Computed example of a mutant assay.
Amino acid sequence: MSDANLPALSKQVTELVLAGSLGHAEQAFAEAADQFGDYAVAEVLSSIPPQVTALHLAGFDGGKMSLATLLVPPKAWADSLAFFAATFPDDLIEDDPERLAEQLFAHIHGVVFSTEDEARRQELLQAASATDHGCTAFAVLFSMAPKEILEVAGEIISKGPYVSGLTSADNDIVPLAVALAQASEDGWDRALFELFPDFRHSADLADAEFSDDPDEEPKFLQRSTKELLYRLRKQVPSTRSAPKAASTRRSMGTGIFS
C-alpha cells in the first residue's frame, strides 16, 4: 500500500466509524485488503486514533466477526482498550455492572481468540496486560468468577507451565485467564492484584479459600465488579493527550513458569 493511499483510507475509515457506519468501514477495509493485502488493514488500524478503533471493534463483539478484529495490531488494540470504558453509562455501572463486564468479556475474548494463531494471541495478551488499563480490564473479567480464578492461581503455583485450567466450575473466563498467565507472567500477577489487593505474591493466593456461603464475609479484600469498572473508567485517557501505553508499576513477576 502506497504512502499516498494510507492517509486517505485512514481518514475515510475514521469518518465512517464516527458516523456510526461500521458496515461501510468494514467494506472499506475489505476493499483495501483485496487491493493491497491484509497488511494494509493493519497499517490503517495502527494509524487511526485508538478511540476510533475502540468504537469500531465494540460493534463486532462475540459472534460478529470483522476484518478489524482479525487484523488489529496488538499495540493498536491495547491502546484502543483504554477507551472501551468511555462508553459505559454511570447508571449501568451502578445498576448492572455484570452486564458491562460481560460486554467487556465478549470484546476481549472475541479479539484474543479470533484466530488459531498462538503467537498472535500471546502478543495481544502481552500488549494489553503491559498497560494499567489492560490489567484493570482483565480484573473486571476475573471479578465475575473469583473462586475459579483462585483455583487457577493455585494450579499455576503448583503446576507452572503444565497448568490445565481445570476448575470445579466450567467457566469461559478460565481459558482466558490461563492464556494470560502463559503469555505474560507479570500481566497475570498485576490483574490478580487488581482484583485481590491484599495479596502481593500469587503464592499467597494459592492458600486462600472461598466459602460457598454467599452470606459469609470474605476473609480478604476483593474488589467488586462495580468498583473495578469505576477504576477502569478513571483510566480512560483524555483524547487531548496521547494514550498512556506503558505502565509505571513495578514488575511483580514470580517466576511461575521458569
Rank of each mutant, 00 (worst) to 15 (best):
P89H: 06
E43L: 12
V111N: 04
D90Y: 08
R231A: 15
V152S: 03
A128H: 00
E123N: 11
S168M: 03
S184R: 02
G59V: 03
A86P: 00
P74T: 02
C135A: 11
A191R: 02
K226Q: 15
D34C: 04
L18P: 01
A127K: 05
A106E: 12
S184K: 03
D186F: 01
W188G: 01
L57R: 07
V111Y: 03
A203T: 07
M65I: 07
A181V: 01
L81Y: 04
P73S: 12
A85Q: 05
V41D: 05
A153L: 07
T254F: 08
S224A: 08
I157M: 09
F257E: 01
S168V: 02
A106Y: 10
A28L: 09
D3K: 14
G253N: 14
E209R: 12
A208R: 11
L228S: 05
A153C: 13
P243A: 08
R231M: 10
C135L: 05
E148Q: 15
E118M: 09
F113C: 03
F220P: 07
T69Y: 00
L45K: 04
V178S: 01
G37R: 03
S10V: 10
E43C: 05
L166V: 13
D186H: 08
S224E: 12
A119W: 01
E118K: 11
S241K: 13
H201L: 03
A78C: 05
S258C: 03
A127E: 09
D3C: 07
D207Y: 13
G187H: 04
F84E: 13
D172F: 09
P197W: 05
S114F: 04
K159Y: 09
T136G: 06
S247Q: 10
P218I: 02
I256Y: 14
S251F: 08
I157C: 14
T53D: 12
L100F: 05
A58F: 00
A137Y: 00
T14L: 04
T115E: 09
I93R: 10
H56N: 14
Q27D: 14
F210N: 06
E155F: 00
A191N: 07
A8K: 15
A203R: 15
Q103H: 09
P214C: 08
V13S: 03
P49T: 01
A85G: 08
H24S: 11
D207P: 00
A119G: 05
K244L: 08
S129G: 04
S114R: 13
T14P: 09
R200L: 07
R231F: 07
P161S: 13
H107Q: 11
E123W: 01
K226G: 04
R223A: 11
K159F: 07
P89K: 08
K64D: 13
G160A: 09
V52C: 01
Q12G: 00
T239K: 12
A58H: 10
V236L: 01
V236K: 06
G23W: 04
P237W: 07
K226C: 09
P50M: 01
A82G: 15
H201F: 10
A245S: 14
P218S: 06
V174A: 01
D207S: 13
L9E: 08
P146C: 11
Q35S: 15
L228T: 02
S10G: 06
S224P: 04
A82L: 04
G23I: 03
E227D: 15
S47W: 02
N5A: 14
